[in-house]
């Protein structure tokens, strides 16, 4: 029997003394694409940060297993090296650090963890160029400081490029489509779909159904009141688009 890639069991977490995740359960097997849909403020970004170990996000209960290992015991960098990647809703600007420097450090940190030799600058640039070309990205982008002065679309393209270069086992996409025009959305979707090889998995977090036309999920979950209230296949997303979230949120 193969172990699941990710197993979230009865997870609870809080930010600033506010309980946001309450009894969350989800299992993702290798090769599966899961969509988690929920209204604004439901705690979707909080869930993605908790999975990545962001400081300030406190787990108050439950457990998370990644490839059978205790994820919650790992530092953010260990989680990334093990193969978790978060495509952030709001990518961070890092003045003074060029994309190439940043990404080269990331690639080599992950490679070192996999006992692979360090990539030298030439081979690294070659890799980034190739991946960038597949996504139709402007090669100049990688010379600029990380996300500084990038438009919303450029930021998401850079997230996608990082994902394509790092080739994570589990990609978590937090509102990957927010603020994107159709062209940029296609770049992101192409990047994600290129990683769908039957083994790698995705957790697609989104408010809108639109993205799921491009990244077609195997499962759809509705997230409200801190946990999953309903699960189904991709038709659930269409249903949500029709009815809205109101019917899923408990009367208070």
């Amino acid at each position: 029997m193969t172990i699941p890639l990710l197993e979230i069991e009865d997870l609870s977490a809080r930010v600033c003394d506010k309980e946001i995740i309450k009894g969350f359960n989800l299992t993702i097997n290798e090769g599966e694409v899961h969509a988690v849909m929920g209204p604004n403020g439901a705690g979707k970004s909080t869930l993605s940060y908790v999975l990545c170990g962001k400081p300030g996000y406190e787990v108050t209960g439950g457990s998370v297993w990644f490839k059978g290992k205790n994820l919650l015991a790992m530092s953010p960098e260990e989680r990334a090296r093990e193969g978790i990647f978060l495509c952030m809703q709001y990518p961070v600007e890092i003045p003074g650090v060029p994309v190439t420097t940043f990404l080269k450090h990331a690639v080599n940190a992950v490679r070192a963890h996999q006992n692979l030799p360090e990539l030298d600058t030439m081979n690294f640039i070659k890799l980034v160029r190739e991946e960038g070309k597949k996504l139709g990205l402007d090669a100049e982008m990688i010379k600029r400081p990380v996300n500084v002065g990038f438009s919303g679309g450029e930021k998401k393209r850079l997230e996608t490029l990082q994902m394509s270069v790092l080739k994570p086992m589990l990609s978590i996409l937090d509102e990957a489509d927010s603020g994107l025009d159709i062209d940029a959305l296609k770049v992101v979707a192409d990047g994600v779909n290129a990683l769908r090889d039957g083994r790698r998995s995705m957790l697609v977090i989104t408010h809108y159904q639109r993205l799921l036309n491009y990244i077609v999920p195997d499962y759809v979950h509705v997230f409200a009141d801190g946990h999953i209230v309903k699960s189904g296949d991709k038709s659930l997303a269409l249903e949500l688009e029709e009815t809205g979230y109101a019917g899923f949120i408990k009367e208070k």
Binding site: E77, A80, F85, V92, L166
Partner: peptide
């Protein structure tokens, strides 16, 4: 910025 880098595997 520190978290962003760490979330990419940088120590």
């Amino acid at each position: 910025a520190l978290f962003y880098m760490r979330s990419r595997g940088i120590g």
